[in-house]
């Protein structure tokens, strides 16, 4: 239970900036309620779940800090996570809440933004900007468009990263997620269209099939004779040479010589 005030402090300072604590315990709900929620008055996120098989707890307490994509940035004792660390981490995030009062003409756009409906927010903001004569309203619209642009840049980077890796499945997934965030805007429609086209392509189908075949084979490999394991892997590698799963199969095949 040590460290509750530390976590509470981090929560108070950084939750509004996109830092979420998920304090996990597998104890029963009544115990969590009485010993933590009621007794310590914590307001950070607490959940009941058993993550022992997923996160291999090496002593309690232990924490893992994940970035916006779910990648682990740090793990260790929670007391080693300082406010300065969190400050650095949240700087990399695109804001999810409008952090200042904007002109009332933009209230609809601000509401949409705070709800994560960036497509609607973008379209509304552009409409307000086009009609505005007041310089202050124009400036506020430009500010909000800037916040939205950060999300566009982040999603673009994700899509490009997947595209650069030649992973068409990940690329389509990134496009779908971005299209959902930006539904109701031009860029959202563009992304939805690109995803649709991509899914029709032979490259996408090959990536999806290669990954499917490799995942089907993976759990069986260890029980196979090395020679058959190699043959099965090489078959995937030969069939889908330009896909991430095909390349992985080629690498794995080398182990069974």
């Amino acid at each position: 239970m040590a460290g509750v005030p530390h976590l509470q402090e981090l929560n108070d300072k950084y939750r509004s900036k996109g830092f979420e604590i998920v304090a996990v315990s597998k104890e029963d709900a009544g115990t969590i309620q009485s010993k933590l929620i009621d007794a310590k008055k914590v307001t950070y996120g607490v959940v009941k779940a058993d993550i022992g098989s997923l996160y291999a707890t090496r002593g309690i307490p232990h924490c893992w800090v994940l970035d916006a994509d779910g990648k682990c940035l740090f793990h260790g004792h929670p007391s080693n996570v300082t406010a300065a660390n969190v400050e650095e981490w949240v700087k990399t995030l695109a804001p999810t809440k409008v952090d200042k009062e904007l002109a009332k003409e933009l209230s609809g756009a601000v509401k949409a933004f705070d709800k994560g409906e960036y497509g609607k927010a973008l379209t509304d903001t552009k409409a307000v900007a086009a009609e505005a004569t007041d310089e202050l309203v124009k400036a506020d619209a430009a500010y909000l468009e800037g916040l939205i642009q950060k999300h566009i840049d982040m999603d673009k980077a994700k899509i490009e990263k997947a595209a650069g890796a030649g992973d068409k499945v990940a690329q389509a997934k990134a496009l779908d997620e971005a299209a959902a965030k930006f539904k109701g805007s031009e860029i959202g429609d563009t992304w939805a269209g690109e995803s649709k086209e991509l899914k029709k392509s032979k490259e996408y189908k090959d990536c999806a099939k290669a990954s499917e075949e490799l995942e089907k084979l993976r759990p069986k490999i260890e029980d196979m004779a090395p020679k058959s394991a190699r043959k099965a892997l090489e078959k995937i590698a030969d069939k889908y040479p330009d896909t991430p799963a095909g390349k992985e199969a080629a690498e794995l095949a080398k182990r069974y010589n």
Binding site: F19, E20, I21, E27, L66, L73, L93
Partner: peptide
Amino acid sequence: KVVMVESWAT
């Protein structure tokens, strides 16, 4: 978001 998964016990 940046998420801190913390395992704890009473």
